[in-house]
Design a protein around this nucleic acid. Structure first.
Lengths: 104, 104
DNA sequence: ATTAAAGCCTAGTGTTGCTAGGTATAACTT
DNA sequence: AAGTTATACCTAGCAACACTAGGCTTTAAT
C-alpha cells in the first residue's frame, strides 16, 4: 500500500524518538489521518530490514508494569537516509504530478 | 521506479490521444521533465496488462513511409480508471506528505 | 476463567517493474 | 554499398516489496 515509500515513512515516523513496532503502527495511522493502517506483517519485517541496513538500531526495553518491547531509533546513517528519502519523495511526487496533470 | 503508479502514468500520458509504445516512453520523459525514463521492458508488458484488463485498446497502424506501430487508446473503463487513479494518487500523496512532514 | 488488547514474529505469495536479452525496419553516415 | 544509429516491438527471468495469514506471549478487562 505504501508503494516503495515505506522506508521513508518508517524513518520519518520514528524521527527523533525511540518507538516500538506497535507504537509505530499507531503513529503512522495517526499522522496520516487514518489513511495508512499498516499490518504488522508489513512493519516488522521492514524494521528488521532497516536495522540490517544500519539505518535503525533496536534495543529491548522493559517498562515497569508492561511486557518487553523492542524500541527502534535512527542511527546517523538513518537520519541521513531520511533526509535523502524526503528529497527523493518530493522529486518523485512532483514528477508524477506533472505527468498526471494534478496538483500542478 | 514508478512504484505502483505506472498504470496511472500510462493512462494519463495516453489521455485522449492514440499513442504507440515508443511514443509513450518519449512522452513520459518529456512530460516528467526528464525525471522518468522508462525502459521498454517496463512499458510493453504494462501496456499488454492494461489491454488485458480492458483499460486500453490497441490497433496496428501502418504510417506511410514508416514501420508498423501498435497504437493504444483508452477505453471507457480506461477513462474511468484514470479518474479514479488520479484521485487515488492525490490522496496517497497527501497522506505521505503528512507523514513525511513535507509539502504540508 | 475468558476474552480482548498489546506486542512480537515468520513463511509464503502475488504484484510490480526491472535487466538483459532478441528481432525487424528505416534513416543516416561513411 | 556497408555500417551504424534510431525507431519499434517483444519476452523470459528475476529481485524487491508489502501483503495475507497465520502463530506466540503477556497484561488488562470482563
Amino acid at each position: 500500500m505504501l508503494k516503495g515509500h515505506l522506508d521513508a515513512v518508517l524513518l520519518a515516523t520514528i524521527g527523533d524518538d525511540a518507538l516500538h513496532g506497535y507504537a509505530i503502527i499507531e503513529a503512522i495511522r495517526a499522522r496520516s489521518g487514518g489513511h495508512f493502517d499498516l499490518p504488522e506483517g508489513t512493519i516488522y519485517p521492514a524494521l528488521h530490514r532497516l536495522e540490517l541496513a544500519g539505518l535503525l538500531a533496536s534495543r529491548w526495553v522493559q517498562p515497569n508494569g508492561g511486557r518487553k518491547r523492542r524500541v527502534y531509533a535512527l542511527t546517523d546513517s538513518g537520519r541521513q537516509s531520511l533526509v535523502e528519502r524526503r528529497a527523493g519523495w518530493q522529486s518523485f511526487a512532483s514528477g508524477i504530478d506533472r505527468v498526471l496533470g494534478a496538483r500542478a
